[in-house]
Amino acid sequence: MTATVETRLALLRAMVRIRRFEERCVELYSTERIRGFMHLCIGEEAVAVGVLGALDAGDAVVSTYREHGHALARGVPMSSVLAEMFGRVTGCSRGRGGSMHLFDAGRRFYGGNAIVGGGLPVAVGLALADALAGRPAVTACLFGDGAVAEGEFHECLNLAALWRLPVVFCCENNRYAMGTALEREHAQTDLALRAAAYGMPAWAVDGMDVQAVAAAAERAVTAVRAGGGPCFLELRTYRFRAHSMYDPDRYRDRAEVTRWKEQDPVDRWRDLLLADGDLDEAGWTRLVAEVDEEIDQAVTLAEAAPVEPVEDLTRFVYAEQSGVSS
């Protein structure tokens, strides 16, 4: 794939936005502006950017609780993501969801699911609806390596393959499910092999290489959109931070983390662009400054935003037009 300079720079910017945003979130968490569980995708940005970048506006996305990067890469405004994490009514879920439950129906971003494996059946159904309506849309379903152990994973891959539904199953294999390493969680650690057993194209990709992810996602989305049934991508990556802000991270070897950091997807891509002359140091500094400016604005807006009035607590338990009161 020969990408233009603009495309290559756009991939870099998209990853830097996610990285800098989450680094700011850590600060905001430590000052208690953000509460609850917060899961960061620092180290996994190439997956978010590569996969989400391969989608069209009409496609659907189903994600997990580790979804800041997915939401930002999908185009959910940073200010509404941050406002959500601040619990403000201007947040993308009115402050009701927080970090783990970002929704944006207009962008077909169906959340933000905090039950491991819980999003897969929903993705199958979204794809079924698109197929029934004759829409050429695909559904990208993102989940972790841990989810592969859940029954729903197996039920959903079978169902999607059986009905030839337009789902791209994207497994972010970051080698850990909380404190449980891949080898202690799966008898067969080649996850693509397991997906292939359900009768769909499945392959593993270097998830630390944004170009490789983008190319694989492009190929998968094209095949799925053409009506060939689902595909499975195993995106091999690593989370640099603890599972969540609560995790004391007792279960991994520091040297392992350091080794993976040498594969930092942002650094790798930036260094390549610098080496290829697509970017110079001044351009890099400017890019970071522009991203930081956007983050500053998002923080200012979130700080100033109102919270939802308590009287509205019971709104939307049922659809407003149904007239049912809880």
Partner: peptide, 16 residues
Amino acid sequence: SAEVPVPYAAHLERAT
């Protein structure tokens, strides 16, 4: 508890 799925925002959770 209020008959709602428990919300994230502190003031709403408290009210629940």
